[in-house]
């Protein structure tokens, strides 16, 4: 007799646990307000990335097309996998001295691991992260970027 009661108890408790689970899922089914996914390309306009989001490395330029990069190469040394390559040139300043300056700051987005060491170690804060995250291109060569804009110059007062 006891075993029969145990048998029935097992069935009732089992079904009860299943019904409790079904209650949770059906509650979600009937509350479409709790949907968490978004319609991505449609909400692109209203999509705001968080300010620290590491999208890609950029070199901010001011309105006079000036940047802060001195071409010292610390970012290149600190980069773990050779994402950054600095090609420097020698320029002659107004007072006639020879000085090293940046020619090309090559950044290979396809290799970047977003470790943020370049941005953090840059002595003159020339690099920053942008919040752009749509990096897909049809040609891999397009991922190799030159960060300093053509014709840009070193900002005054940055050594």
């Amino acid at each position: 007799m006891r075993s029969i009661i145990e048998y029935l108890r097992e069935i009732v408790l089992g079904i009860w646990s299943l019904l409790k689970g079904m209650k949770v899922t059906s509650t979600y089914f009937f509350s479409p307000g709790k949907i968490v996914t978004q319609k991505y390309p449609e909400n692109r306009k209203s999509l705001v990335m968080l300010e620290r989001f590491k999208g890609e490395v950029v070199m901010p330029h001011n309105e006079k097309n000036e940047h802060k990069c001195t071409g010292c190469g610390i970012c290149e040394i600190n980069c773990p996998n050779g994402t950054i390559e600095i090609i420097s040139k020698v320029i002659i300043t107004e007072d006639g001295k020879k000085k090293k300056a940046i020619d090309k700051h090559i950044y290979r987005l396809g290799m970047c691991t977003f470790c943020a060491l370049c941005v953090k170690t840059c002595p003159s804060n020339a690099l920053a992260f942008s919040q752009k995250f749509e990096h897909a291109v049809f040609n891999r060569a397009l991922l190799n970027k030159i960060l300093n804009k053509p014709g840009s110059q070193l900002m005054k007062g940055v050594e």
Partner: peptide, 11 residues
């Protein structure tokens, strides 16, 4: 993401 900038590989 808000603090570290990365979601999974936080560094």
């Amino acid at each position: 993401e808000e603090t570290c900038g990365g979601r999974m590989l936080v560094s």
